[in-house]
Design a protein around this nucleic acid. Sequence first.
DNA 1: AGTATATCCGAGTGGAAAAGTCGGAATAGC
DNA 2: GCTATTCCGACTTTTCCACTCGGATATACT
Lengths: 179, 179
Amino acid sequence: MMRVSTKGEYGVRVMVDLARHHGEGPRSLTDISLAEQLPLPYLEQLVKLLRDKGLILSTRGAHGGYQLSRHPKDIRMSEVIRVLEGPIAPMICAPEGEMDVVCDRLECCSTQYLWAKIRDAILHTLEQMTLAELASVTTPERIPAHAQVVPAPGATAHKLIPLAQVLLRSSPLSADESE
Amino acid sequence: MMRVSTKGEYGVRVMVDLARHHGEGPRSLTDISLAEQLPLPYLEQLVKLLRDKGLILSTRGAHGGYQLSRHPKDIRMSEVIRVLEGPIAPMICAPEGEMDVVCDRLECCSTQYLWAKIRDAILHTLEQMTLAELASVTTPERIPAHAQVVPAPGATAHKLIPLAQVLLRSSPLSADESE
DNA sequence: AGTATATCCGAGTGGAAAAGTCGGAATAGC
DNA sequence: GCTATTCCGACTTTTCCACTCGGATATACT
């Protein structure tokens, strides 16, 4: 549930990549797509979003590329996600910001309380975290040693991985998923 | 972003409805679909999920229907959402529960930290709230008076509303949505 | 017994959005 | 001029959501 789209995933990864290479001048999408194993033409789309909203700067021509417009410390993850995935609202009933003409059902308003809470929780989390913070995290406590799976070598090496795609439905994870 | 599907929305509304009529014996789907203005055949599907996981009990035959298997106070919203929308994981990289064989990319793990945080935030919110609590909320502080929009009368009266559908894209809400 | 009211179940469908592709134009360094 | 790059719009493909449909089964009431 509540899944973040690949736009969000890839976009964040691009931003983290840029944060790590901050101050080194423009970094090309080709480099990024190689480093992150993501399809370049698709990245072009995402990056446009980030640039249009002023999160990154572009340099055209040879040796061109992208770089963060601000220091990673000054970029909140809420901004990033909002640019990539649109306003943070788990449900139409609980939009970010103003509560406008949205909900014509009174009943809806009861459950609306729930969505609002969820939205606030997400928002708070994203508001707290900066890009710098995220970029600095190398081995978060969440990842136990045994999770360091060694993939079938070569399987992921020479081909661009449609990452989320592949993993999404095969997921043999929580026993919860008996669906 | 992070949108809850109609399964989640409708399902929660059904549960709230049932909570409000708790102790009155079985309540038929026809009644619920009328009260909540939701398509009955679709509800049948959702309700199956809730029943299979033991959240509600069914009584077949005439005067049959559904009722909560436990007191609303003893039903956490996390359970409800999990049943309806699957495990609470904003991203494959951050599944609920164990961190199993999931992520074959090391880079992914940096951003994974973010998804994990978000998941935890959502989870905490849902874990805290009980169905009873949600059902008791009538006019949450979130809803200002001017939000009490009077819809074009009759427009929503005689026809089952494809609610989310209609509202999802027309949303004239946050100025953020200049996309 | 028969009928009306329910749940139950699996399959099927239409449409929309997500995910990614493609071709080419503009720009800048060499 | 050649090459590396951003830039842009349109196009395709796939997937999944939201919902329908037809019928089977079960129970209450008359």
